[in-house]
Design a protein around this nucleic acid. Sequence first.
DNA 1: ACCTGAACACCGTTCAAGT
DNA 2: ACCTGAACACCGTTCAAGT
Lengths: 242, 242
Amino acid sequence: MHADDAPQPPKRKRRPSKDAPSLSSDRIIAAALDLIDTQGVDNFSMRNLAKLLGVYPMAIYWYVPNRNALVARVTAHVLADLVPEDPSADWQDDLRTLLHRFRAIIRAHPNVAPLIGAQLVSNASVDLMMIEWVLQVLRRSGLNEADIPAAYTATIGAMTGFVTQEFAAVPQDDKTGWADEMKQIAQSADPEQFPLAAALMPKLLNRSFILRWDNGSAVPLDDGFDFFVESFIAGLARRAGH
Amino acid sequence: MHADDAPQPPKRKRRPSKDAPSLSSDRIIAAALDLIDTQGVDNFSMRNLAKLLGVYPMAIYWYVPNRNALVARVTAHVLADLVPEDPSADWQDDLRTLLHRFRAIIRAHPNVAPLIGAQLVSNASVDLMMIEWVLQVLRRSGLNEADIPAAYTATIGAMTGFVTQEFAAVPQDDKTGWADEMKQIAQSADPEQFPLAAALMPKLLNRSFILRWDNGSAVPLDDGFDFFVESFIAGLARRAGH
DNA sequence: ACCTGAACACCGTTCAAGT
DNA sequence: ACCTGAACACCGTTCAAGT
C-alpha cells in the first residue's frame, strides 16, 4: 500500500503501440514469487530475478523502487484472495474460515511466511475490506463494543502468528545431523526430571514446536493448529458472554 | 542445541595460563546481541561484529561455524531466563505468566523477534525444562490427556506467534511517507463501504495490526495482547471443561 | 519511456599461512 | 590453539549512458 517514490509507469493512456516493454510489474511479481517459492527468500536476489527475466538487474528498478518494496508486493499478491465471501450466519464459523484460509495460502507459499510480519500491509482497498470483514464478524459475536479494537488485534495476531511460526524456515545447514541430535536428546530425556516430556515424546518429536527439525511444509501441525484456533474462538465466545 | 561441526574450544581442562585468547563464545554472543539490538538483524554482519571485537572477521569462525549458528546462539541466550519458577496453584496464572514473560523478553530485545520462529531451538536441557513446565501446567488444567500434545503446540504457538508479529520490524525506508499515506487512506475510508472500519479508525490507526507504521517497540499493542492471551486461556479452560 | 553497463561499497566463507 | 590475510563469488543500488 505504500506509494513508491520511484518513477512509475504512469497511468499509461495507451502505449506507443509498437515496442511494448518487455517487463511489467505483474511479470516481475510473478517471477519473484516463483523464485521465492523455489529458492527461499534468503536466496532470492535482484540479480537472480533479472537473470530469470532475461534482463539486466537495473531494469527491474524501473518498476520497483527496491528489494523491500518488491517483497512487500509479492506478499500482498499472495494474500490477495484471503478475505472470504460475505459473512455467514455464524460468526464462529466465519472466524474459523478466515484462519484456515490464511493457513491454506501460506501452505501454498510457505517461503512467504517469514515476510508476513512486516509486510501484511498491502493494497489499501483490499486491506480495508479485510479489516471491515473482521470487525463485522467481531461485532456479531456480541462482544462489548469497547472491546472490538483489542479483539481485532488479537484476531489478526492469532491469524498470522501461529502459521508464520509453523512455516518458518528451519535452518537446513545440515538437517540430518540436527535431526539425529534432537532424536538423541529426546531419547535421553530423563523420566525422573522430565516425566511428561519423556512420556509424550513419541507424540511430540518432530510433530510440535521446538522439538521438530522439519517445518510446516514437510510436517504440518494440523492438530496443534486446530486446537489453537478452537481455543481462541471458544475464548472469544466466552468473553462475549456465550 | 545443534552441535556444531566446526572445531570447538575443547573441554579445555586448563588453558596454558598465559596468552589467554582474546575471544570467547560468550564475548562473541554478547557483542552480537549488542549489534543486533542496536543495528537490527539485517545490518548485523560478521564483518561489523569482527570490527566491534577488534579482530579479523575469520577469527570469529574459530568459535562459531557460521552466521546462522551464531544467530541461533544469540536467540538461545536471550530466551535463557524464560521459564518461570515452579508452577503455582493456578494453571491459568501460570500460563499467563509464561506468555507475559516471553513478551517482556522480546520487548527488551525486539530485533530478535524475527529470529524466534526458526530458532527457538536452543540449549537442549533448557528447552526440556520449558517443555516439561508447559506440559505440567496443561495437565493440571484438566485437559484430556490425549489433547495435551496438541495443546502444547497451540500454547507455544500462542506464546511466540503474537509477539513476533507485534515486534516484527516495520520497513523503515521512508517511514514518514508511509505514515502519511496510511493516515490519508484511513481518513478517506468510505463510511458507506467500510462503516465499522471508518468509525473505529481513531482507535485502530497505528494502534493495531495492519493499520500501523510503528512496531511494538514504539507502540506496544498492550490491549490486543491482553485480549489475545485471555481469550486463549479462557478457550483452553472451556475445552478443559471449566 | 525503458533498459544497458560499469562501478561502488558491501557481504559470508574457503583456504593457506602465521605464531 | 588461535588468529591473520588474501581471495572468491556473491550482494543491492547509484549513476551515466544509450535508444
